[in-house]
Amino acid sequence: MLVNKAYKFRIYPNKEQEVLIAKTIGSCRFVFNYFLAKWNDTYKETGKGLTYNTCSSQLTQLKKELT
């Protein structure tokens, strides 16, 4: 018999932590949407999407461009 357990935690971040959490989530959203758009464009043009390795190498380049 398999029993699944779940735990809920409530966090109370201070202002500095709230800012850091918001920046992290915003960055993740930007990267996801950026590569989703690239994947869709590539799929429309070639009929194939991007691989993980392609996105990973482009992410490194994107970080260099944006920082």
Rank of each mutant, 00 (worst) to 15 (best):
E65C: 10
K64E: 12
S27C: 05
L50N: 04
N14D: 15
K15P: 04
E16R: 08
Y34P: 00
V19M: 10
Q17I: 09
K44I: 01
S56Y: 13
T42H: 14
T54A: 06
Y34M: 01
W39G: 00
R10N: 09
C28E: 14
L59G: 14
E16H: 10
L50W: 00
A6Y: 10
L59K: 07
S57N: 14
T60D: 12
I25R: 15
I11V: 14
N14F: 14
S56G: 00
I21L: 15
K23C: 09
Y7C: 02
K63P: 02
L59H: 05
C55I: 15
I11F: 12
I21G: 00
R29I: 04
A22E: 13
Y34E: 08
K5A: 13
N14W: 10
T24V: 10
N53F: 02
T54P: 00
T60Y: 05
E65G: 06
Y52I: 11
K48P: 02
E65D: 12
G49P: 02
M1K: 12
Y7S: 05
S27A: 15
T54G: 08
P13N: 01
S56W: 11
V19H: 07
N53S: 07
G26I: 00
N14R: 15
N4Q: 06
K23V: 13
N40W: 02
A22W: 05
K8V: 09
E45P: 01
V31E: 01
C28D: 11
T24E: 05
Q58E: 07
S56L: 08
T24K: 12
K64D: 03
S56D: 03
K15R: 14
L59V: 00
K15M: 09
T67G: 06
L66S: 03
K8I: 04
S56C: 05
C55P: 03
T67S: 11
R29L: 06
Y43V: 03
